[in-house]
Design a protein around this nucleic acid. Structure first.
Length: 597
RNA sequence: GCCGGGGUAGCUCAGAGGCAGAGCAACUGAUUCGUAAUCAGUAGGUCGCGGGUUCAACUCCCGCCCCCGGCUCCA
């Protein structure tokens, strides 16, 4: 996989500083124009780097005070002047040593530091007007090409991405080839804000956060419906796929973490508890404990694969600044499983797992993308073990007909893995599922064995996997994916009965009871409000079906059906409403189907 | 954890040394309504928490907590 533009700037890999496509080039050039504007307005700032990124660009500046929104407005105005002046982007080459001298004279310390780290004898500079920057290009012809852009925000960012380094001031902006594209992007950002799961979670009464428990949600009745439906879905599927569910303790003596290696490597992220002079910790992962279940009996090669699933509630002490709604929490529940198998079973297990991942995501109309991460520099086990495992994972991906990227060297120290991402409406990429082959960690540290056909003890392979990732994050992503309008099987309220006036309350109640009798999550809105008001309310709560009942409906034994999609389906016989709804829920249909023939 | 911005009624937000505000929601009453907001009235507050300055602090100063945008880290 090609390195991102940001990567290239940070690591100086590749031939260019940005992807030579028109859009990346434009964004890269826009970042130079921004740096030029900043230097004009604030000559004292020193330049760091300014790459193109997804949806835009940024530039980092060394400056003691942060940029304010007023600063951004002035910078943007100056950028427009620079664009109007239409300076040519001129490329110039010089010897590295000469370039070091050049930037040293200008007191551009960070540029000098970059140059000192390069081993190329010659380097290139790009110049537009009075502005010069160390850069490998490419760039647009002149600043006049920079037209459709907007500065978005400023924030702190560490030099070279390491928190050991000083903090710089970063300005983010976006740039597009046409005005329409820019408009569309800004609209998308607005739309994403509307779908923010934190906002929808509050509006739809799904969950709450409170200062007394940062990073841990309070699930409200409506949100708990989502949790329960997802759990039910997962259990049904896992039961059918040969898993056995277990549950292991939350609070565990530190001895276990010393054995698993977490105490050495993960201690800072663990919540510790002193109990009668002994140290315990809330589990940050479920894997070490699942080995106790494995080791409980002497396992035969015939027992494998052993698939142990767990709704594992984990606690990780994430740094305070990183918490974000449901997608980054301190307490979460993984849909975890550990599969213990013989090395020769690895490929089939992974193949089946990938099929399961696709099957699950299809239900939610989520588009996954797959990444295979391979042997890192520091690894446990033998090369032969790794080669065989990587081959098994790659073959499994191929067997499922899946395209995938390779993240070379990005595997865990104990084995290669496949990560699955989805994109949310904000364009953010979330890692959801992970499938990790574990050749050594659990098997070696916990001395796992099975008795093979030849009567000899052998070491099994473990697979760690989660498909939703965590219920919390998954519900956060689903909320934004559906904009709160969950498919009927997930919807906290599936149908709402609306009597036209008090006169129809009795019939409305029988309709309501009929729905509830069929185990449909229905409610009755017989408040003393006009019908329009109550329809608006149900609409904003994103209730899939409204059943409006008045005199006509009572006489005919029907309900007027108004799906939240807004169309008027008209009067539908109650039997049919109940039948269609029950079916729609049972098959976990992605769309609303009731009353349509 | 770091940089910046915030925290005022259930929600969205105004107010910036001198009586705490609005809209929506809630509650009460009237209205009995046919597909996205009926009218009138009532009630609602430790202005995040703690300390300081002042005759007087929501407002100024210090510390802390939490939230938001990034950085770093990550399911």
């Amino acid at each position: 996989m090609a390195a991102s533009e940001e990567e290239r700037h940070l690591t100086l890999t590749g031939d260019f500083d940005c992807d030579p496509s028109p859009l990346s080039t434009l964004r890269h050039s826009t970042s130079h124009v921004m740096a030029q504007a900043v230097k004009r307005l604030h000559p004292e700032v020193r330049l760091a780097i300014g790459p193109a990124i997804e949806d835009g660009f940024y530039y980092d500046f060394d400056r003691s005070t942060p940029f304010t929104t007023d600063d951004l407005a002035r910078i943007e105005a100056t950028m427009r002047e620079i664009a109007h002046a239409d300076y040519r982007f001129e490329r110039r080459e010089m010897d590295r040593t000469e370039a070091i001298r050049f930037f040293r004279e200008r007191d551009e310390r960070l540029k000098v530091e970059i140059l000192e780290g390069i081993d190329a004898p010659r380097v290139s500079l790009y110049e537009q007007g009075e502005f010069v920057d160390l850069c490998r290009g490419p760039h647009v012809a002149s600043t006049g090409r920079v037209k459709h852009f907007k500065l978005l925000s400023s924030s702190g960012a560490y030099w070279r991405g390491s928190e050991k380094n000083p903090m710089l001031q970063r300005i983010y902006g976006t740039a597009w080839l046409t005005a329409e594209d820019l408009e569309k992007y800004l609209w998308r950002v607005e739309e994403a804000k509307k779908r923010d799961h934190r906002k929808l979670g509050r509006e739809l009464d799904l969950f709450d956060f409170h200062e007394v428990a940062p990073g841990a949600p309070f699930w409200l009745p409506s949100g708990m419906v989502l949790v329960r439906e997802l759990e039910k879905f997962a259990r049904e599927s896992l039961d059918a796929h040969g898993y056995q569910e277990i549950s292991t303790p939350l609070l565990v003596n530190k001895r276990l973490w010393e054995q698993s290696g977490h105490w050495e490597h993960y201690q800072d992220n663990m919540f510790k508890v002193e109990v009668e002079g002994e140290t315990f910790s809330l589990k940050p992962m479920n894997c070490p404990e699942s080995t106790y279940v494995y080791r409980r009996a002497l396992r035969s090669y015939r027992d494998l694969p052993l698939r142990l699933s767990e709704m594992g509630r984990c606690h990780r002490n994430e740094r305070s600044g990183t918490l974000t709604g449901l997608v980054r929490v301190r307490q979460f529940t993984q849909d975890d499983a550990h599969i213990y198998c013989r090395p020769d079973q690895l490929q089939d297990e992974i193949t089946a797992l990938l099929a399961l991942v696709r099957e699950w995501y299809k239900v939610f109309t989520l588009e996954p993308s797959f990444k295979l991460s391979t042997r890192p520099e520091k690894y446990l086990g033998t090369r032969e073990q790794w080669d065989a495992a990587e081959r098994a994972l790659a073959e499994a991906l191929r067997a499922n007909g899946l395209a995938y990227d390779v993240n070379a060297g990005d595997g865990a120290f104990y084995g290669p893995k496949i990560d699955v991402d989805v994109h949310d409406v904000l364009g953010r990429q979330w890692q959801i599922a992970t499938i990790q082959a574990d050749l050594t960690m659990l098997p070696e540290r916990f001395q796992l064995e099975y008795i093979d056909a030849d009567g000899q003890p052998k070491r099994p392979v473990a697979i760690h996997r989660a498909i939703f990732g965590s219920y919390e994050r998954f519900i956060g992503i689903l909320t934004e994916h559906y904009a709160g309008a969950f498919p009927t099987w997930l919807a906290p309220v599936q149908a709402r009965v609306l009597p036209i006036s008090e006169k129809h309350a009795d019939y409305a109640r029988t309709v309501w009871e009929r729905l509830r009798g069929a185990r449909i999550r229905a409610d009755l809105d017989d408040r003393n409000e006009k019908l329009g008001y109550r329809i608006r309310d149900a609409q904003m709560r994103k209730v899939p079906y409204m059943l409006v009942v008045g005199e006509r409906e009572r006489a005919a034994g029907t309900a007027s059906l108004r799906p939240r999609t807004g169309e008027d389906v008209g009067a539908v016989a109650l039997d049919r409403v109940v039948g269609d709804l029950t079916r729609e829920i049972a098959v976990r249909a992605p769309d609303l189907t009731v009353g349509r023939s």
